[in-house]
Design a protein around this nucleic acid. Sequence first.
DNA 1: ATGGTTGCCTCGCAA
Length: 225
Amino acid sequence: MLQEIKCLTEDFPILDIKALGYEGVAVGQKAYNGVALLSTQPITDVIDRLPGDDGDPQARYVEVKTGGVRVASIYLPNGNPVGTDKFTYKLGWMDRLTARARELLASEEPVILAGDYNVCPTDVDVYDPAALAGDALCQPQSRARFRTLVNLGYTDAIRALNPTEHLYTYWDYQAGAWQRDLGLRIDHLLLSPQAADRLIAAGVDRTPRGEEKASDHTPAWCELT
DNA sequence: ATGGTTGCCTCGCAA
């Protein structure tokens, strides 16, 4: 599941990806946002927007069925600065995601909702909670909505299998944050009960973040039986 | 101490 592809759908390099052996679907827009989903298995049942607001132009959600699992690639709004329409949009988007997550639970399929949630669920997920206290990623309203989503019956795969570690997934480009390990855990994999029953491993691969011209995020992953 | 970095929508913006 990819986020911030930052290109038009037709500019996503789908042919290159297919040449590497993956099926793929992208939902893009010019310059900002954009999500995609790659799979070694056939992809069906594509939903290219988060239900609940047909007037929302931002490309932040794609959901498919692949490999017997329903999977969504999520790019939840950042929401900064707090007190603006951006934060209001974030909270509304989270309410829409919760509604969709509730519908998906009723299907009793294995479901994985994964991507950049732009939420640090607790202070353990923040390198300096005091410094980030005013950030949209750490607001009580953001965290409450994340908890509501999990409490529907989803498992935060990385936290469930690693209760005490920080497991940051994002380090700012500025001020040597990566070199000093000043990170945030904002990328999550939420699993329905039917997926969580099959969860055998989950973690964060820090290697790509250390490469030249790295993304400011690094991959989070999980493995099901 | 509100800094600094990245990339496009380019000398402002969103992250």
